[in-house]
Amino acid sequence: MSDAQQVGGIDRRWVYLLVAVGALLPVLIPMGLPILTTPAVEALFQRVESFGPQDVLMLSFDYGPSSAPELDPMADAILRHCFTRGVRVVVLALFPLGGPNMAQGSLDRVTGEFSVEEGRDFVYLGYKDGAQAVMRRMAEDISAAFPRDHRGIPLKEIPLMQEVRGYPQIGVAVSLATGILGEYWANLVNAQFGQTVAVGATAVSAPKYYTYLKAGQMIGLLGGLKGAAEYEELLASAYPELRDRARVARRGMDVQSIVHLIIIVFILLGNVFYVLSRSERTRAGGRLGPR
């Protein structure tokens, strides 16, 4: 076996180890690499910026723990943005496998930082099964889909929900989604009911949402941890007092940058060694192509 083949055939566990070390270092020692923002994220941020205490944002937790590292920072940043501006929030969960816990966890983390009152400044409706049916029902009457909030209090007794009957009273509906649920907000809630929609998607799903964004079916898109980091960056720039709190995703992007560099180096090295070993085989009179 030639030198090139030997190096190219390195045990993949060495690659894992290098990625682990590259990922761990920025977690231990944050580097604060710059975050560049994109129009898709700025659009949602600016929409929330234009809101005031009379406006309501709907935040749907359509993901579970497996997507939490990407979507939790988005949820926290959006909630902080709303509460800082006095925008009221209607929270719900449509993803069965952990959605309710994700919503409760985010509210627990953020509401303690602000002097907000449940029922007046925000409402958590809880979880309801049957995503599309729930979305349709909410267009007619939110209380028909969620007769009570997560504490069991009837919606008609909650001050905020006395003003919010359905989509017409919602300024923008933001879905933090894994899988197909985010699509329903665009191709059902926006297309059929004209509700302004934005989606925070896992990075795996993000490419498909660009078609909805470009077609005007969504006003904003936060794609994966990068989207969350961009929103945190915009929030920290506009509200410096939140800089230390809105940093989970920005810190994660340090890791992304280092690990992506490692991956790029390995892709380049892999191709170089492939070409070298191929040319060695050609010189030795062997057949072309990988063995």
């Binding site: 761990l24 977690v27 989970v248 890791v255 992304q256 992506h260």
Partner: peptide, 18 residues
């Protein structure tokens, strides 16, 4: 994007561990 998503999950776990 998929690579970024998988690294994000690693970030989440490492952040938790630390």
């Amino acid at each position: 994007y998929t690579v970024m998503a998988r690294i994000s999950l690693l970030v989440g776990r490492l952040t938790f561990l630390v």
